[in-house]
């Protein structure tokens, strides 16, 4: 696990009521790092928040973690079960 996935995972676990179902997957795409955050169905609202404010906060902190590792980060939220 990289610092990036660790950070996203710690934040998401604090926000959701179902922390055991949090999965974070990192992949590389043309110079940017894609981080996919998988949550239990129905938990998406907790990480998005009113006016997407929580989602914006998570993207800021993911960027901070990426900054430390020299990565440009895109964070996406998924409420489908993680397959793979």
């Amino acid at each position: 696990m990289s610092a990036l996935t660790d950070v996203v995972s710690v934040l998401a676990r604090a926000l959701t009521d179902r922390p055991d179902e949090v999965r974070v997957v990192e992949s590389q795409h043309k110079g940017t790092t894609l981080v996919e955050l998988y949550l239990a169905p129905g938990e998406l609202g907790k990480v998005i928040g009113k006016q997407g404010r929580t989602a914006a906060a998570l993207r800021t902190l993911a960027a901070t973690a990426g900054e430390k590792e020299g990565k440009t980060v895109t964070l996406e939220f998924r409420d489908t079960p993680y397959k793979g």
Binding site: K46, A56, L61
Partner: peptide, 22 residues
């Protein structure tokens, strides 16, 4: 210091997450 870069934006974001979670 990493958290106070960019005019403290990461710190603001962390405050928001803490407010939401706790």
């Amino acid at each position: 210091e990493l958290l106070v870069r960019h005019r403290g934006e990461p710190l603001k974001a962390l405050q928001h997450v803490v407010d939401m979670a706790y």
